[in-house]
């Protein structure tokens, strides 16, 4: 049987409320969801809560899920991201500070960026303001367009764009600061 067949059977059983099927689905997608959750939270504990809440929501709404339209992974990740955004909004943690973006700094090519591992990137992202981090995640990592992000966050598309620019600029500064790259060294970061 193909993977899709297995998932189809698991979904059918999960819709009936079979715990073994729900557990299997959870174990299949938990790692992927954790990878996403960790980008939207401060620490692993908060990420775990987010993953759990997302799976609970998924199993509650599983009747609406149609496997013919796609696999459950993207569906659960969308639930997770929405949940994360709700949490941000609920706690008023999303602030989009306006900052004038001056002329783009010259791009400096360097191989140092290529040496950054996922953990380093995550650490850098954690240091960003939450509004910037969320927009960076949504646009750069998840691939949402600025119009979509605007709708999700209740801001305009141009505000999303400017926040992304800001987050890139901040990231560049953080890289220079944390890794000790001197101004005269090329970082390869390209704003905009």
């Amino acid at each position: 049987m193909t993977n899709k067949d297995n998932i189809r059977i698991l979904i059918a059983a999960a819709k009936k409320g079979t715990w073994s099927a729900q557990k299997e689905l959870y174990l299949t997608y938990a790692d992927d969801m954790m990878s996403i959750a960790i980008r939207y939270t401060k620490d692993q504990s908060a990420a775990k809560d987010l993953v759990q809440d997302s799976f609970i929501k998924f199993f509650e709404k599983i009747e609406q899920f149609d496997i013919e339209k796609g696999m459950p992974g993207p569906w659960i990740s969308r639930i997770l991201i929405n949940k994360a955004l709700q949490n941000y909004k609920k706690e008023n943690r999303l602030s989009f500070e306006t900052e004038t973006i001056f002329a783009q700094e010259p791009s400096r090519e360097t191989s140092i960026i290529e040496t950054l591992e996922a953990e380093d990137i995550l650490n850098l992202l954690q240091e960003l303001p939450e509004g910037c981090r969320v927009i960076f995640n949504l646009n750069v990592v998840e691939g949402y367009k600025h119009e979509e992000i605007g709708k999700m966050l209740g801001i305009t598309a141009s505000a999303s764009r400017s926040q992304l620019t800001r987050s890139k600029k901040l990231l560049r500064k953080l890289i220079e600061k944390n890794i000790g790259i001197q101004d005269d060294r090329k970082t390869g970061l390209k704003a905009g």
Binding site: S35, I38, R39, A47, E114, A118, E119, I121, L122, V141
Partner: peptide, 12 residues
């Protein structure tokens, strides 16, 4: 691109 690839492949 690098950030995206690294984060997508990252397993916690």
């Amino acid at each position: 691109k690098h950030f995206k690839n690294k984060l997508k492949q990252h397993k916690v």
